[in-house]
Write a protein that binds this DNA or RNA. Structure first.
Lengths: 205, 205
DNA sequence: TCATATATGTGGACATTGTCAACATGAGGG
DNA sequence: CCCTCATGTTGACAATGTCCACATATATGA
C-alpha cells in the first residue's frame, strides 16, 4: 500500500505535507495544484477529492500553521521555570522566532488575501486559539499583580500586534538585525516595562 | 487627445490609477492585465510597453501607496498644535487609519509576496521614507526629554511594529472594534506610557 | 517639408493553471 | 460474489501572463 496502488492511502495528509514543503522552499506562489499532485504521485485532479478548490487547500495549510504556533506558545505558557512576567516576554520572542523561521508559511497564515477573504470558521478558530495562549498569560500576570488592570483582551491585542509587526518587518527585510532573539527580547521588554521615562495611568478605550 | 487616438497620452498613469481602483474595489487578485487594459481602453499587451511584467506594475502601485502614507505621516509630524508626545501618539492613529481605510492596497504594500520578493530599491526607499517620519518624531521627543534614550531606530521599530500589527488584526477581522480611532489611540498611548505598573530601566538590544 | 527612426499600441499565439465532467478502479458491506 | 461509493484518471476548456511580429503615430533632422 505504499508505491503503486490506485488508491493512495492518505492523500489528504500527503497533499498538506507536500504543500507545506513547497511553501517553505519556494513560497506560496510556487504551489500549483498540478505540481503538488505530481510531487505526491497522483494525477492533477485527484486533490479535488479532498479539497473543494485551491483556496481550501491553502486554508488547511494555514490552519496547520496556527496549530503549530499555538503549540509553541502553549509550551512557553506552561514553562514553570519562569514567572508570569518572564513568560509574557518569552512568548513574544517565541512568536517572532516562529514567524521568522517559517516566513513563507507565516505569510500565508497571517495575510495572504485568498486565505483571509475566505476565512472559514475553522480558520478563525485556529487563529483565536493561538491568541488565547497570550491572553491567558496576561490574566495570570494580572492575578499576580504584575500587569495593569486593563481588559486582558486589549493588552493581548497590543502585544500580539507588536509581535506580529516585528515579525513582518523582519520577514520583509525592512529591518536588518544581527540577532533576532535579542531584538524580539528588547522589544517585548520595552513594551512590558514602558517606553517613556515618566509613568502614569491613562484612560482606556 | 482624449478619446480615440491610437496613442493614449499617459497610459502609464492611467494604468496605475485603474489598478489602484480595482484593488480597492475587489482586491489584488482581481487585477488582471487584460481587465486592466480593457478598463483603460487599450489592448491587452499595451501595458507591457510601460511595465516589464505584472509584478513591476503592482510594485509601482505599492510604491504610490507608500508615498501617500508618508505624506499622511508627514502631516502629523508637522502639526504645530501638538507637542512631540502627542504627535507620536497621533501618528500611530494615523497609520492605523490609513491601513484600515486602504485595506487591500495596504496588503499589497506590506506583505504581498510577489511584490515583496521582487522588492526593488525604489520600493524599499519608499517604505523607508515613510518610516523615517516616525523616527524623526522620536528624535524630537528625545531632544525634548520625553522619550527614553534608546536608539531612535529601535523605538521606531517598536512603534511601527505595533501599529502595523494592530492594522493587520483589524484588516483581517481578527479583532472586532467599534471605534478604530479610539482603539489605535488606546494602544499607542499604552505603549507610550508603559504597560506595567512598576517602571524601571532595562538594558537595550 | 518630408522621410525615417523611435516610441507606443495591436493581434495572434502559446504555455501554464484551475477546474469541470465523464469515466475507471477497487475496497467493503450486503 | 456483486454492487455501491469513495477515490483516482483523462480530456477538455477558459482565463491569464507574456512573447513576437506588425501597425501607427510622433519626433527628429536633413
Amino acid at each position: 500500500m505504499d508505491s503503486k496502488t490506485y488508491h493512495h492511502g492518505d492523500l489528504r495528509k500527503a497533499l498538506l505535507e507536500a504543500a507545506t514543503e513547497m511553501i517553505s522552499e519556494d513560497g506560496v506562489d510556487s504551489v500549483t495544484i498540478r505540481a503538488l499532485a505530481q510531487r505526491v504521485g497522483v494525477s492533477r485532479t485527484a486533490p479535488y477529492r479532498h479539497f473543494k478548490d485551491k483556496d481550501e487547500l491553502l486554508t488547511a495549510v494555514a490552519i496547520e500553521g496556527y496549530e503549530r504556533l499555538a503549540a509553541t506558545m502553549a509550551d512557553v505558557r506552561h514553562d514553570q521555570t519562569l514567572d508570569s512576567v518572564a513568560r509574557l516576554s518569552r512568548m513574544g520572542e517565541a512568536y517572532v522566532l516562529f514567524a521568522v523561521e517559517n516566513a513563507t508559511h507565516y505569510r500565508l497564515m497571517v495575510i495572504d488575501s485568498s486565505v483571509q477573504s475566505r476565512s472559514t470558521p475553522a480558520f478563525r478558530e485556529a487563529a483565536l486559539t493561538a491568541r488565547q495562549q497570550l491572553v491567558d498569560i496576561i490574566k495570570e500576570g494580572q492575578q499576580e499583580g504584575f500587569v495593569i488592570d486593563a481588559p486582558p483582551q486589549d493588552i493581548g491585542n497590543l502585544l500580539w500586534s507588536a509581535s506580529h509587526g516585528l515579525a513582518t518587518l523582519l520577514i520583509n527585510g525592512q529591518m536588518r538585525v544581527k540577532n533576532v532573539e535579542a531584538t524580539a527580547k528588547f522589544m517585548t521588554e520595552k513594551m512590558c516595562y514602558g517606553l517613556l521615562k515618566q509613568d502614569q495611568e491613562t484612560a482606556e478605550s
